[in-house]
Write a protein that binds this DNA or RNA. Sequence first.
RNA 1: GCGGAUGUAGCUCAGUUGGCAGAGCACCUGGUUGUGGCCCAGGUGGCCGUGGGUUCAAAUCCCAUCAUUCGCCCCA
Length: 413
Amino acid sequence: MSKITTIKGFADLFPPESEVYSLMEETARDVFTRYGYRELRVPVLEHTELFARSIGAETDVVQKEMYTFPDRKGRSLTLRPEATAGMMRACIEHGLQEGVSKYFSHGPMFRYERPQKGRMRQFHQIDCECLGAHEPQADAEVIFMLMHFLGALGLSGLELNLNTLGCKACRPAYRELLTAYLQGLDQELRCEDCRRRVQTNPLRVLDCKNSGCRSLTENAPTMHDNVCPDCRDHFNVVRGLLEQGGQKFVLNHRLVRGLDYYMRTTFEVVSTNIGAQSSVAGGGRYDGLVAQLGGPDVPGIGFACGMERLAMLMNTTQERRQDFFLAVLDEKALDQAMLLACALRRDNKSGDVSFAAKSAKSQLRQAGKSGARHCLILGGDEFAKGSVLVKDMRTGEQKEILQEELIKALDSL
RNA sequence: GCGGAUGUAGCUCAGUUGGCAGAGCACCUGGUUGUGGCCCAGGUGGCCGUGGGUUCAAAUCCCAUCAUUCGCCCCA
């Protein structure tokens, strides 16, 4: 019989790693709530069209990375490759309130890519979306919040990259300008991919990691120098706010995001020491997206954090702590022991109880490994007296205590 | 989709020129009739990824295949 295994690019998370993910989720909730965000839970499966319309039909994500399949009635469904589209869909479907709405979410996303370090086919993101604010103060707040969150996870050594992508008024002109510039040095472009990109997505040439391409585009016109006055003013306010707030950042004119809906402010947080997949969070403004999905013309800005990548940066040494381990030395006492343990748990104590009467030595060993503060020993003698022997695992002191006084005794020890 | 590396015990990995399948950690039992960590003794645990080939003989050499992994692409 062949073994059934996980699907390629899908992973089981055991402790302590699973606990790191819980910690990230709790921290996110704690921090985001302070900024007025509330949780939105949306489905993992959506109509394919949602993603085609929001992310961009020409992007790699939509063209070759989605888990798309027909349901039993032939409708095309897709496992979400990112969170924003579904959250926008939900907001539109249930009617947006006037003013600003702030939502966060977290959960699994799916992309059919070749797995590698920090990249799974099922991966997890924490997302924040702020709708209804076109002002640059909203951009700055979102960035402050993201950095606050990453700081609360105890991460350091991260770099915030910032850029503006212009808007639908000024980006087309820049795109032409850049294309013309790139075609001027077409022969010298070293990498194959960039030759193709000049045609399909010229902005991506700026983002190429090939050092030859990078030096060739060193003097290319930048979006930043070619945005319209409105975009320039917007970006300057964002930069000014970050500076005043003491948030360091790097202006990176090569920062071009892969999803079509981004405009104006974009940002990305990178780490230098987790291998090739260095981007741990990214986001930006997407003012046209809600309208594009059939909703009102409401502006938006948000970001996504890659939990797998954050996990690589967090130290996973969380010690196990329990209040007790209940060792049972006599078969007669097994039932009573289990009931006693449950009573302790109802009284907010945490701990394990033996289901089988084994040697004192082996159970003390087990108690030690469980990290229990006290080992409660219930053998034939204690069973007869209705008591329990309480051993302090740190000092080794032990004391016999009647079972009905146990709860009070554990508190005072 | 393209390249490179690796598959041997639960985990991390040795395994020489082709010659009985190994270590450390973990786990279990005992040393102590009912007392952990340290120490000591013993023990469980393997289709050597899978299928074929060469050979008297294959974990080892050859072919295929699957899986994992690191890069590219792309993205969080």
